[in-house]
Simulated scan of single mutants.
Amino acid sequence: MSLLIRNLINLDREQSFSEQSLLMAGQKLKQALLPILGLLGFLLMWSIAANNVTTSLGKFPGPGAVITQFDNLYQEHVSERDKELAFYERQHKRNADRIAKDPNYVPKVRAYTGKETFLDQILTSLKTVLSGFILAAIIAIPLGIAIGLSHTLNQAINPIIQVFKPVSPLAWLPLVTMLVSALYVSDDPFFSKSFVNSLITVTLCCVWPMVINTSVGVASINQDWVNVSQVLRLPALTHVRKIVLPASIPAIFTGMRMSLGIAWMVLIAAEMLAQNPGLGKFVWDEFQNGSSQSLSRIMAAVIVIGLIGFLLDRAMLQLQRWLSWDKASAKR
């Protein structure tokens, strides 16, 4: 009798486990299918809307036209790289012939000055936004820690932050351009002025969210941890390194993620406004071009801008998961 009861209990457990497994499998399938269904629905609505919208340049581009442009843009990049390679090969052959005739000849190599391709513009924008973001982090995180630790410093600097925080970085762009033109004077500059202008603009939009979130995170540290540090009489730098930084990492990364997203949006707008090299300039040039393919090329750029913004946010989130002790703060 006891054996029968034991078998019935085991059978019930196996059935429960099987039901739980099916339920988990169903949930995972649902999580995988819903984004796909959402994407398919978006593409369907996009196709229908595109067929019913006519602009001065023709039909609004649908998914098929945009996919075609991705291939065209890549082929243009390959063609431009082939031209660059042929350009340097011609120089190399010309210099080799000159040296053969005159061993004392000092060869000269001119830089290739062909147009930037779509992929080149992507790399330019990424280099600019990451450089500005890193520079802002170097400035903002130490400043935020200092403000969070010192009530006096907080009272002194907070009004300045509150005044300049709402100012659009694009409003700074004319001033930044004038200052860079006046101060960054060199016959052979290491960085181009357009890069420095965009870099400073990105830095200005990144600083404020990082300063505010870092200072709030530092000021909100568990008082028990601060008391332990005081009991152990930790030096100031050790206190910051062992207590403050680990405890405030979730808040710091929240500010960094916000800053990076804002920086990417601001950079594209700044490149359009100032005609600095990058994806923003590509979009504006295509708009000014006004060809039959301009709209589909602009739409391709818009999709790439969105995907890069998404990937930058995911990369920052993954970095937070690696470095933060609070894994719950880095779930999404």
Rank of each mutant, 00 (worst) to 15 (best):
N51M: 12
P61F: 06
L40M: 09
V218N: 07
E14K: 14
P246N: 03
I262G: 01
C205I: 15
R98D: 07
L43Q: 06
N154G: 15
E89I: 05
L43E: 04
T124Y: 12
I99N: 06
R297M: 09
L44T: 14
A328D: 11
A219D: 09
N227Q: 15
L260Q: 07
N72V: 10
K30D: 07
F42Y: 14
L3K: 10
N227D: 15
S125W: 09
N52K: 09
A137Q: 11
S21A: 14
P189D: 01
P169M: 01
E76L: 14
R98L: 15
V78N: 11
A100F: 02
V302F: 08
I160S: 11
K83I: 10
H92S: 15
S186G: 03
V180F: 08
G26P: 07
V202H: 12
I9W: 14
Q27E: 09
P209Y: 01
L175D: 02
P169F: 02
L126A: 04
L34F: 14
R90W: 04
I122A: 01
L143Q: 00
F190E: 04
G114I: 08
K108E: 13
T177N: 00
M24G: 00
I298G: 06
L232T: 05
G144H: 01
W322V: 12
N72M: 09
R314F: 02
W322E: 03
I36C: 04
T68L: 06
L130N: 06
D285I: 02
I141S: 08
S198T: 09
L119N: 06
N276M: 08
G132T: 06
C205W: 00
R314D: 05
S229P: 00
T128H: 10
N72A: 13
Q288P: 00
A269H: 05
N7Y: 07
R321H: 03
I212D: 05
A25S: 13
F60Y: 14
A247K: 05
L175Y: 12
Q20K: 15
A156I: 09
A328F: 04
T152F: 15
L57W: 07
I212F: 03
G306R: 07
V129I: 12
S259T: 08
P103Y: 10
A263Y: 01
V185G: 08
L143G: 03
L323H: 05
S194G: 09
P159Q: 06
N289F: 14
M210L: 02
G217T: 01
R233E: 10
S150H: 11
I122D: 01
D102V: 01
G144E: 01
I99C: 07
F87L: 03
P61W: 05
E116I: 06
H239Q: 13
L319N: 04
S294K: 01
E14P: 00
L170D: 06
Y88W: 06
P246Q: 02
S168Q: 11
K115Y: 12
S198C: 14
R13M: 07
S21I: 14
V167K: 03
F287C: 06
D82W: 13
I141Q: 08
I200D: 01
I252C: 04
